[in-house]
Nucleic acid binder design. Structure first.
Lengths: 227, 227
DNA sequence: TTCATAGTTCGATCGTAATCGAAGCATCGT
DNA sequence: ACGATGCTTCGATTACGATCGAACTATGAA
């Protein structure tokens, strides 16, 4: 009633279980249709449509028409970061929406966080890049790619200039809910995950945020980012 | 329905306007009684009591009995950090619960963030400490006080050993919703704010998170932490 | 054109949670 | 011991929002 940002609005958007499930599904990074999201949330298409309209009005998701499909996705990196931070808190309270199953270890090992790699592997990658002085911690918030780091990612086949052109930050941190430490987000984080998948080192699990590394891919990854 | 932490529960706790107002009030750092919190939220004591029970069950606040009063406070630094991050997102969407008034500039300049200093002054302080190499950015997440920094804070009259003894981190970052950059949290952040107030440099505004520096206090602060 | 698929909008129903009055405990002061 | 203050619990009311069936719109396929 007095001052400061209105967190109630955002909280209430996330606070509905159906919407929370949809948002969590969108954390997988792929744009999904209302029908798919309705399935994720266990509700009918009509209800999902109404929820999506609210999420869009709140600025959490955006929509892209393509033929007779509509693809919904998180509207910005920001949204993913905020959700991950909420998940971190929920996890620290032991609030999970599932009984820990066989998929859980896979999720903790490597998963998609909106558009970049998270979990043990994600954290290890950032730690390793920092240890090798390929990424520098520039300030309290900022990460910067060093010259060595730039040479390294270009050797891997990533077009650094293209990354830099976009308005989005190239490197940024994202707090990992399972590891409780940061991993690498930003356009570089996105490009790296894409690289691993393009190289055939890793594949996304269907219907899950888990990322499954092949034996060869895992070996290459661990060599590339030693502890 | 599938995997991952349950953000809906936390979201719904924050999602009610009355609870959001109470939480925002508790971001002021002082423990408040149900009566005071009811006033902040514009509801009766009975309703406030029921809300506080829910917040406590969800682990967001804790309660301390003292005579016939009960003092409620955020349960951990973690909670404050999470709320500040939500506020950052809400603010970036232009979602505020007030029409920008005369108090707003004061809030942006210096305010209490749970138990430490935030706003322009808070950000400046951390930037200055880092520039002077009194605080080092140790990793992606960690801040560390250097020897020079330790000498500095001890010269100011802060008992560093006492800070270190507690289980809480001494230095940590907290994302500032108005500046969109980090400021210093942790037990050192708390001790520094306390110091400024004890020295008479600054005073909390009543019924607000704003911190008002005296002319002398402001001069001293700006000299102590040059840009 | 006609049918099928994808999605939105409308309207009605239903549940849940916020709210407050009243009553019940506990603690303090006298 | 007694009244006053601070807070919780109980119960009843109310309001809002989630849900889904049905009707409507749009795109694509045959």
């Amino acid at each position: 009633m007095k001052e400061g940002p209105d967190i109630a609005l955002i909280g209430s958007l996330i606070g509905d279980p159906a919407r929370a499930n949809m948002l969590t599904a969108l954390m997988g990074g792929q744009a999904l249709t209302p029908t798919e999201l309705a399935g994720e949330a266990g509700i009918t298409l009509q209800t999902a449509s109404s929820h999506l309209a609210k999420l869009e009005a709140g600025g959490l998701v955006t929509q892209r028409k393509q033929g007779r499909h509509r693809y919904y996705a998180l509207s910005e990196d920001e949204v993913g970061l905020m959700l991950e931070s909420l998940m971190g808190f929920a996890a620290s309270r032991g609030l999970t929406r599932h009984r820990p199953g066989p998929k859980d270890p896979a999720l903790r090992k490597a998963r998609v966080c909106y558009n970049h790699l998270a979990g043990d592997f994600g954290v290890r990658m950032l730690d390793s890049l920092i240890a090798a002085r390929e990424i520098e911690v520039a300030g309290a918030d900022d990460l910067a790619l060093t010259d060595a780091g730039r040479a390294r990612v270009e050797a891997l086949g990533i077009d650094y200039d293209a990354l830099k052109k976009s308005r989005r930050p190239v490197c940024r941190t994202c707090l990992d809910w399972s590891e409780r430490r940061s991993h690498l987000a930003g356009s570089l984080g996105e490009a790296l995950l894409k690289l691993f998948i393009d190289k055939g080192w890793a594949k996304r699990e269907k219907d899950s945020r888990a990322v499954r590394f092949t034996a060869i891919g895992e070996k290459a990854f661990l060599e590339l980012f030693p502890r």
